[in-house]
């Protein structure tokens, strides 16, 4: 890791357990600023969980997260988030512009209403994702790709330095995927750091200049050309971790099962 680059995100020893069953083990990494970073790993590897743990949506059993050198809780303003599309009810009675304006709420603080400048900014963000014509459209009338663009525009409206995106390419058409990646490139050029949960191994080298390989724990992190190797991919997708998950499973079993095992052991 070169020293001249600033560290945008630093994660140390992050461990997350659901119902006492560990899903992420001691994850450590530091992301240099100004990169487009792919978070790669098989299903159930804990990719979304990692984002949620970084953003403090799920409690971590151990570890800490720093954004530009300070704890996440103090730096929320610097962080933008694009959740999975299915996480919300698209029948909700708001229009596209309303959703994008939500990105401004963090800057507004409590009690203040969005002003003209916020509206204009939100419109500019919609322009950036090519959705300006849809500003007054009810969100239930959008296609999957359009919904994704609206979420991106909302994140842009946050004016963050670091973006976390949970599968922005899931279920979108090819045209949307190209325009999203164009947008991400632009963010990178502006010096922002973007961490993207990504599934399609074919496009990793094309899209990302940095990668994190994850499978319950961090396998590798670094520039794509040296990190995205066959060896590392085998480690990430190979079955070497069955013992880890087996042990985690045994640990999370109710006491009876454990007592039974103890009995057999003796």
């Amino acid at each position: 890791m070169s020293l001249d680059k600033e560290i945008a995100v630093e994660v140390h020893d992050l461990t997350v357990a659901y119902h006492r069953r560990p899903v992420l083990w001691g994850v450590d990494f530091a992301l240099p600023a100004g990169h487009l970073i792919g978070l790669i790993g098989p299903n159930g590897a804990g990719k979304s969980t990692l984002l949620k743990a970084i953003l403090n949506m799920v409690p971590a059993a151990s570890g800490w997260v720093k954004i530009y050198g300070k704890p996440y809780a103090q730096q929320k303003r610097l962080v933008g988030y694009v959740p999975q599309r299915e996480s919300v009810d698209w029948d909700f009675p708001v229009n596209v512009l309303d959703v994008v304006l939500m990105g401004r709420y963090g800057h507004l603080g409590l009690l203040r209403r969005p002003r003209r400048a916020d509206y204009e900014f939100a419109m500019a963000c919609l322009e950036q994702v090519g959705m300006a014509n849809y500003a007054r459209r009810q969100i239930s009338q959008l296609s999957g790709g359009q919904q994704q663009r609206v979420f991106l525009a909302r994140a842009l409206a946050q004016e963050a330095l670091v973006y976390f995106m949970d599968e922005p390419f899931a279920g979108v058409d090819a045209a949307t995927e190209r325009s999203i990646i164009g947008l991400l490139e632009q963010l990178k050029k502006d010096g922002k750091t973007v961490l993207v949960v990504h599934h399609d191994l074919q496009t990793v080298q094309e899209y990302f200049d940095w990668v994190l390989l994850l499978n319950m724990r961090l396998i590798a992190a670094g520039p794509t050309e040296v990190t995205f190797t066959d060896e590392n991919l085998r480690k990430t997708y190979g079955g070497r971790l069955t013992i880890l998950s087996q042990a985690a499973h045994a640990f999370s079993q109710p006491a009876d099962a454990l007592v039974g095992r103890e009995g057999r052991e003796g």
Binding site: R240, L241, I243, F251, R261
Partner: peptide, 21 residues
């Protein structure tokens, strides 16, 4: 096998190891 850093090994080994089937 799981490529943990040395300084994480001992702590992570703490609880689960007692219940390895």
């Amino acid at each position: 096998e799981a490529d943990f850093a040395v300084d994480h090994v001992d702590r992570d080994a703490d609880d689960i190891e007692h219940y390895l089937p």
